[in-house]
Amino acid sequence: MQNLEKFVQVNGAKIHYIEAGNGKAVVLHHGARFNAHTWEETGTISAIAEVGYRAISIDFPGFGKSESGNFGNLSDFISSFIETMKLDKPILLGASMGGEAVLEYAVDNPKKLGGLILVGAVGVSSYENKLKDLDGLPILLIWGKHDNVSPKHNYELILKYVKSAKFVNIGNQHACYLDDPNGFNEQIKTFLKGL
């Protein structure tokens, strides 16, 4: 299945994304050192398309091929992107910085989502008082065994408040999808098939 490079205007900014597959949308958000192509290199876009979903890997504003634009924060951008693309209850995947952005959007809009995949998300404790609002939403938490950027306290906090969250270790480092892309993609495919 071919990955297509596309652009869309979001609040006047030209935003780049890579898309493959059809079906319910899974929107992928990268970490601070990465961009939309990271999820292409790990085979994650293709893996998601393989199991009957529409994978959309975006470059955050000011990253990769996206313009900076004028967004309050990354959560506001996610909200605008979902509205612009007219996505119905998408599943959001976010790694590290992208994980925090996705989490911030999710705690404010749990009813607008079909699921959540957080990979070594940072800043989780900032949203502790709202985490319980995510209970009932299918959530997959993926952390590297020796993540030295996002400590295990972050996923433990989510597991404490969200009974519908499932946790797995993949690889070792913070960017665990680089350690074991196949294992990472298999976990995501299993999660998506179960929705």
Rank of each mutant, 00 (worst) to 15 (best):
G136T: 11
R54E: 03
I117T: 03
L28H: 03
K24R: 13
A47Y: 06
A165G: 10
L178A: 03
G72E: 14
I56T: 08
K132V: 09
D88G: 00
A106N: 12
S79Y: 07
I48F: 12
Y17H: 08
R54K: 15
T42C: 14
I188T: 12
N3M: 04
F81H: 10
Q173G: 13
A55V: 11
G194C: 05
L141G: 05
P138T: 01
F60W: 05
D135W: 01
D180K: 02
L157E: 07
V149W: 00
P138M: 00
H16V: 02
N3L: 04
K89V: 06
T190P: 04
S66W: 12
D147M: 04
N172T: 11
V26N: 12
T38Y: 07
A25Y: 08
G144V: 06
E41R: 10
Q187Y: 12
L131F: 14
Q187I: 03
G123N: 15
A47N: 09
V102A: 09
L28M: 12
I188P: 12
G23F: 07
G183Y: 14
F60N: 03
S125N: 02
G52K: 08
Y155F: 15
L93S: 05
F7I: 04
T190D: 15
K145F: 09
Y53M: 10
D180E: 11
L195V: 11
F81K: 12
F60K: 00
P151D: 02
G194H: 11
Y17S: 04
A25K: 09
Y127H: 15
S46D: 15
A95M: 08
I82K: 00
I18N: 05
A49S: 10
K14R: 15
N182A: 02
A25T: 09
E104N: 09
A101D: 04
V119A: 14
A106M: 14
F81S: 10
L131S: 11
D59C: 10
N185Y: 15
K163H: 09
T190H: 14
V149K: 01
N35W: 08
G64L: 11
V10P: 08
G62R: 07
D180L: 00
H30G: 08
K160C: 00
L137D: 02
E128K: 13
V8H: 01
K86P: 01
L134T: 01
D180S: 03
G52L: 12
G21P: 03
A55M: 06
L92A: 06
N169S: 07
L140G: 03
W39T: 10
L118A: 15
G43N: 08
V149T: 15
F60L: 14
T84F: 06
A106T: 13
F71S: 02
S125V: 06
K160A: 01
I58S: 01
L87D: 03
V119I: 14
N3W: 00
G183A: 13
F63R: 02
V149F: 02
I18K: 07
E186C: 09
V102L: 04
D135S: 08
N109T: 05
L4A: 12
D76C: 04
F167D: 01
V168L: 05
L192T: 10
M97T: 09
L93C: 06
T190F: 09
L159N: 00
I15A: 12
D108V: 08
F7P: 04
F191Q: 11
E40H: 07
I18A: 06
G12A: 15
E40S: 08
H30N: 09
A121F: 06
